[in-house]
C-alpha cells in the first residue's frame, strides 16, 4: 500500500481542454481506489504556490500548451512519484483519449507490469538507493529540453562530416587537393592535427550558435548546469570529429559514401539514444545496454540526462570520460591508418 501524496493541479484552460489527464488524475485520487496515489486539489497557481509554501502539498502540476510543469520545493520520494506519474500520464495520454471510459484497465493492464507495480518498484528503489530527484522548480526542466539535448548530441556528431571533408584534403586517393598536399613536405600528423583543430573550431562555433539561439531566441533556461553542458558538448564535438576522421581514413570509397556512413551512424545512434522518443533509450538500456555503452550519441545524451536526473556528477563524469576515450581511440585509428600511406591506385 502506497502513501497518498498531497498534490495540486492548476485549474486553467489547458486542464479544461485535457479531459484524459483530468480523468487519470481523478482515478489516481479516488478514495475508493485501493491503489490510491494522490489527494488532488484543483486550485489557482497562487493558491497552489501558497499551499506548497505551507507544506500542505508535496508539489503541484500546471498544464501548459507544450508540456506539464511540475513544481516541488524539496527532494524526496513523494516528489519523485509526482514527477514519474505525471510524465507517465502525459506520455500515454493518446491511449487514454481513446479509452478514458475504461481508465481503470489502463492502469491495471495485465500485459506486463502494471502502473502501480512500477510505482511501487520505483519507491522501493528510491528508498533503497537514497536517490532523489532535484528541485525542478529551479531549473525548469521539461520534455522540450530533453529534445534539445538529443538534438545537441546529434549536432555534435555531425562534426564528423566536417572532419571527413577536412581529411579528404589530405588523402591523395580522395581529392586532387589531397594529391597536392601529399607531395608537400608537411607531415601527415601535422596536417591531421591542424585539420582537426580547424574543424573542431568550426564545429564549436556551430554549437555556440545553436546554444545562443536556444538561450536568446527560444528562451531555454539551462539552469545552473550550463558549464557542464558546454563541457559535454565540447567533448561531444571532439567525438563526432574523430569518428569522421576514422571513417574517412579506414573506409575505401568516395567522399559521398563516407559522408553517408557518418550520417547513418549518427542517425542510428541518435535514434537508439532516444531522439525520436525517450522510451527507445530505456528499451536499449534495459535489453541491450552494451549498445548504448558504445554509442557516442548516447554518451552525450546520457550525460545530459544525468545532469537532469541526478544530484551527483558521477554518471556525467563517466560519460565525459567515455567520450574522451572514444575520441582518442578514433584518432589513433586515423593516425595509424594514414602514416606512411601509399596507394595502389589514385
Amino acid at each position: 500500500m502506497l502513501n497518498v501524496v498531497d498534490i495540486a493541479v492548476i485549474q486553467n484552460e489547458e486542464l479544461d481542454n485535457n479531459n484524459s489527464f483530468k480523468q487519470a488524475m481523478d482515478y489516481l485520487s479516488n478514495e475508493k481506489n485501493s491503489n490510491r496515489l494522490f489527494s488532488t486539489r484543483y486550485v489557482s497557481e497562487e493558491e497552489a504556490s501558497a499551499l506548497l509554501e505551507k507544506g500542505e502539498i508535496s508539489g503541484y502540476v500546471k498544464l501548459t500548451a507544450e508540456n506539464p510543469k511540475i513544481v516541488v520545493d524539496k527532494n524526496g520520494v513523494d516528489q519523485t512519484i509526482i514527477k514519474y506519474a505525471v510524465e507517465e500520464i502525459y506520455q500515454s495520454q493518446d491511449s487514454y483519449e481513446e479509452l478514458y471510459k475504461n481508465i481503470e484497465s489502463i492502469f491495471n493492464k495485465e500485459d506486463g507490469q502494471s502502473f502501480f507495480d512500477r510505482i511501487k518498484s520505483l519507491v522501493i528503489m528510491l528508498t533503497k538507493n537514497n536517490i532523489n530527484i532535484k528541485d525542478t522548480s529551479k531549473s525548469n526542466l521539461s520534455y522540450t529540453m530533453i529534445e534539445y539535448y538529443t538534438l545537441i548530441a546529434m549536432t555534435c556528431m555531425y562534426g564528423g562530416i566536417i572532419g571527413a571533408v577536412a581529411i579528404s584534403w589530405i588523402l591523395a586517393n580522395m581529392t586532387n587537393i589531397g594529391k597536392r598536399t601529399s607531395v608537400s613536405p608537411s607531415s601527415k600528423l601535422t596536417m591531421i592535427l591542424s585539420s582537426c583543430m580547424a574543424s573542431y573550431v568550426v564545429q564549436i562555433i556551430g554549437i555556440a550558435i545553436l546554444f545562443a539561439f536556444t538561450i536568446f531566441g527560444l528562451k531555454v533556461d539551462y539552469g545552473d548546469k550550463l558549464p557542464q553542458i558546454i563541457l559535454l558538448s565540447s567533448i561531444g564535438c571532439l567525438a563526432g570529429l574523430s569518428l569522421g576522421l576514422a571513417v574517412s581514413t579506414t573506409v575505401k570509397s568516395g567522399e559521398g559514401a563516407k559522408v553517408g556512413i557518418i550520417l547513418a551512424i549518427t542517425m542510428t545512434g541518435s535514434f537508439l539514444s532516444g531522439m525520436m522518443g525517450v522510451t527507445m533509450k530505456y528499451i536499449i538500456d534495459k535489453n541491450a545496454p552494451i549498445i548504448n555503452k558504445l554509442n557516442p550519441v548516447n554518451m552525450i545524451t546520457d550525460g545530459f540526462y544525468s545532469l537532469y536526473y541526478y544530484d551527483t556528477l558521477d554518471r556525467f563524469n563517466f560519460n565525459v570520460a567515455s567520450l574522451a576515450i572514444f575520441s582518442v581511440i578514433m584518432l589513433v585509428i586515423s593516425v595509424m591508418t594514414l602514416r606512411r600511406q601509399k596507394y595502389d591506385n589514385i
Partner: peptide, 22 residues
C-alpha cells in the same frame, strides 16, 4: 624516395593534370 622523405619533397613542385585548388 619515400612518403616521409620531407627533405626531398621540399625541393619538388608538382602540377597535376587535374586542377587542384580550393
Amino acid at each position: 624516395m619515400t612518403p616521409n622523405a620531407y627533405d626531398i619533397k621540399r625541393k619538388i613542385g608538382v602540377v597535376f593534370q587535374d586542377v587542384a585548388v580550393f
